[in-house]
Design a protein around this nucleic acid. Structure first.
Length: 375
DNA sequence: GGATCCCGCCACTTA
DNA sequence: TAAGTGGCGGGATCC
C-alpha cells in the first residue's frame, strides 16, 4: 500500500500514554477521510473489514459505521461477509440519481400532505405532525418525500432503523424536497414519525444523524452552517461537487475530521494528525475561492463534479488548465514530501510517526516552524 | 449547560 | 453455534 500507514496510526494513537485523549482524532469524519484516502485509488477492488480496521487503527465497529454510510451512496457494495466491493466515486451519481428517482416516484401517491396518512417507520408512525413541527424552510413537499422514504417498510424494524437506510432517507430530504437547510433535530423528527416522538427516540435518531452527517460532511456532500435567522446549526446540501458557500458559511463551524485550523488551535497534540487533515483542508480553501453558482445537481456522469476525494483519473470540473498551478497537491505527492522512502514498511511507519511527533514538539516548544524535511 | 458524538455493550443475523 | 453485524444509549468532550 502506497499510502503511509503511519499517517493513520499516528492519528489514532492518541490513546497512548503520552498523548491525552482527543475526541476529534477519533471522529467518524476523520476516519472516513482516512478510509477514503486509503481505498480511493486504482487497483482497489475489494475491501476487507478487518484489513480496514487494522490499517486505520480502529475497531471493526467503527468501520461498520463508515461502510454503511458509504454503501448507501454507492461507493461500496457489500460483497460477502467481511468483504465489500469498492465501486468508487464514479458510482455516486448513479446512486444519488436512483435515490432521487425513488424519492420522487414514491412522492406521487403520497402527494397529499394532509395529516391523516400513516406511514411506517415503526408501524403506527405518521409523518404529518412532524412536518408541522419543522422550524425552517419550505416544507411544501417534504411530507410526501418522507412518507415515501419511510414507506420502504420492507421488513424488520432493525433494517428500517439501519444507518444505511437512515442515510438514504436523510439524503432524500435534500434531493427531493425544497428544503435547503435541515437541522438534525428536524430531520430526526421527520424520519421518525410522530408516533415515536418521545424525546428519547428523537435524541437517539439525532445521534445517528450526527454520525451520518459527519461522514457526509467529510465527503463534502453536506456542510454544517448556522441558520441565518435562528442561528441554529443545520446542514446544507452541497451537491456532488461539494463546494462550500462563501457567503453564509459559519467560520466558527465545528467540522470534525476536516477542520485543521480549529483542530490545531485547540489541540496541540493534534499536530500528529496534520498530514491527514492538510489535503482536505487545502481543498476546502481552494473551493471557497470559487464561485458556487456553478454547483449543479445534474447527475449525469459527464457533468458530475467530484469532491475532494475525486478519483485521480477524473478531472475536476470547474478547474481550468490555468488553475492547475494552484491545484492542491494530491495525496501521494503530499505524503511523499514528508515521508522517507524506506523499503521496510514497519521502519518507515515508525520513522514517519516520530517525524510528525518531533515536528509537533518543535513547533510547540521551540515556537518555530517545522524544518522542511527531505524525503 | 446544551450540543456533539465516541465508545462498547449486547441483541440480532449470518455462515 | 461462533462469528459477523450494527442498533442503541451512556456519558465524555466540546463550545
Amino acid at each position: 500500500m502506497a499510502l503511509p500507514s503511519s499517517v493513520y496510526s499516528a492519528a489514532v494513537e492518541s490513546g497512548s500514554k503520552d498523548v491525552p485523549y482527543c475526541r476529534k482524532q477519533k471522529s467518524l469524519g476523520l476516519l472516513c477521510s482516512n478510509f477514503l484516502s486509503l481505498y480511493d485509488r486504482e487497483g482497489i477492488e475489494t475491501i476487507g473489514l478487518d484489513d480496514a480496521a487494522s490499517r486505520l487503527g480502529v475497531e471493526r465497529r467503527r468501520i461498520y459505521d463508515i461502510v454503511n454510510v458509504l454503501e448507501s451512496v454507492g461507493i461500496l457494495i457489500r460483497k460477502a461477509k467481511n468483504r465489500y466491493t469498492w465501486k468508487g466515486f464514479g458510482a455516486i451519481p448513479e446512486a444519488l440519481e436512483a435515490l432521487k428517482r425513488e424519492g420522487l416516484r414514491e412522492n406521487g401517491p403520497f402527494a397529499d400532505t394532509s395529516c391523516s396518512e400513516k406511514v411506517s417507520d415503526d408501524e403506527e408512525d405518521s409523518m404529518s405532525s412532524d412536518i408541522n413541527c419543522l422550524s425552517q424552510n419550505d416544507k411544501s413537499d417534504t411530507s410526501s418525500v418522507l412518507k415515501s422514504a419511510m414507506a420502504s417498510k420492507s421488513g424488520e424494524n432493525r433494517k428500517e432503523k439501519s444507518l444505511g437506510l437512515l442515510t438514504q432517507n436523510f439524503v432524500k430530504l435534500f434531493l427531493c424536497t425544497d428544503m435547503d437547510l435541515i437541522s438534525l433535530e428536524d430531520a430526526a423528527k421527520l424520519l421518525l414519525g410522530d408516533g415515536k416522538h418521545t424525546s428519547m427516540t428523537t435524541r437517539t435518531k439525532v445521534r445517528r444523524l450526527y454520525d451520518i452527517a459527519n461522514v457526509l460532511s467529510s465527503m463534502k456532500f453536506i456542510e454544517k452552517i448556522h441558520h441565518p435567522e435562528t442561528r441554529k446549526p443545520a446542514f446544507r446540501w452541497l451537491g456532488l461537487n461539494g463546494k462550500p458557500d462563501n457567503g453564509i458559511v459559519d467560520s466558527k463551524k465545528r467540522i470534525f475530521g476536516t477542520d485543521l485550523t480549529n483542530t490545531a488551535k485547540r489541540f496541540k497534540v493534534d499536530e500528529d494528525g496534520l498530514q491527514i487533515l492538510k489535503p482536505v483542508n487545502l481543498m476546502r480553501v481552494k473551493n471557497e475561492t470559487e464561485n458556487e453558482d456553478d454547483r449543479t445537481t445534474t447527475m449525469g456522469a459527464k457533468s458530475y463534479q467530484f469532491g475532494p476525494f475525486a478519483p485521480a483519473n477524473v478531472p475536476q470540473v470547474g478547474v481550468s488548465n490555468d488553475d492547475k498551478g494552484k491545484q492542491v497537491v494530491d495525496w501521494e505527492s503530499l505524503a511523499s514530501t514528508y515521508r522517507p522512502k524506506y523499503h521496510n514498511q514497519a521502519l518507515k511507519d515508525l520513522f514517519s510517526h516520530y517525524v510528525e511527533a518531533w515536528k509537533s514538539w518543535y513547533t510547540e516548544v521551540a515556537g518555530k516552524s517545522p524544518i522542511q524535511l527531505m524525503s
